[in-house]
């Protein structure tokens, strides 16, 4: 059983978001980088749990990024995984990123490809679905539970107002969200072991980007909260009805 887990580098959730160069570039000044939480807590940790249950499972990690992504992929290796691949290109275009991962996935003949449900920077939720399109594989999105059963996986996915359980034949792609696994912290043994785990750098394939970011904007500041006295809820109801037209 060969698993491929897609890892993305994102700014820490508490980062102050700002832009430079005439609002065309994300300001990385003072930003702490982390493994995208959905990739780490759910996709990667679930893969590690599967390997703990069945030592014949092999886990490869893949990230698309330049040398500054290496601390992140090493951190992921410290949590678990056998080896990592970094594809040496920086891109904001989901199609370019997915095409790079698809090329690696084809070569590696993986049984299961795991992604987080989205990254917390671009929130596009594109990579899993695009891989499914590029590789012509079954895709189960927004999964919160998964068990392997020979050549099939039983996966629970979120639907409006509930969840459904489905069986999918491998190879398949699953995007992971909360519920899939419990968050872990790398231990010293893992951190030491990660230093010597193989990290292969491969050059990107040539693909044309399909989108281009023109500018970024910050949301307009709220005009300020209107406070209502705690003993005057009728006034709040009036404001919500007449001013905000909220119900």
């Amino acid at each position: 059983m060969k698993l491929l887990v897609c890892i993305s580098k994102t700014p820490d959730t508490t980062s102050k978001i700002a832009f430079t160069e005439g609002n065309t570039k994300f300001d990385e000044n003072g930003v702490q980088w982390i493994i995208n939480p959905y990739d780490e807590w759910y996709a990667l940790v679930r893969a590690i749990e599967m390997k703990e249950q069945d030592p014949s499972v092999t886990i490869h990690l893949v990230t698309v990024g330049e040398a500054d992504a290496e601390p992140i992929i090493r951190k992921a290796l410290a949590l678990g995984g056998d080896e990592a691949i970094r594809i040496n290109i920086q891109s904001n275009d989901s199609f370019v990123v997915a095409s790079q991962i698809a090329a690696i996935a084809k070569e590696g003949a993986y049984d299961l490809i795991l992604t987080g449900k989205e990254t917390i920077d671009y929130n596009s939720a594109c990579i899993g679905s695009m891989l499914a399109g590029l590789l012509d594989m079954p895709f189960v999105s927004l999964a919160n539970h998964m068990v392997l059963n020979g050549n099939t996986a039983s996966v629970k996915r979120e639907i409006e107002g509930g969840e459904e359980t489905c069986e999918v034949a491998l190879p398949a792609i699953v995007s992971c969200q909360k519920g899939m696994a419990e968050q872990r912290i790398p231990n010293m043994r893992g951190i030491m072991a990660a230093r010597t785990k193989p990290l292969k750098v491969v050059e990107p394939i040539v693909v044309q980007a399909t989108t281009s970011i023109k500018t970024y904007d910050l949301p307009p500041a709220k005009s300020g909260v209107k406070l209502v006295a705690a003993d005057n809820v009728d006034e709040l109801v009036r404001l919500l009805k007449e001013e905000a037209k909220a119900f």
Binding site: I17, I120, T211, L218
Partner: peptide
Amino acid sequence: TVTKTVFSGKAFAEINID
């Protein structure tokens, strides 16, 4: 050019589909 929310609602990006 399409405007979308990025950085989990902390900013917007204007993205051109080419």
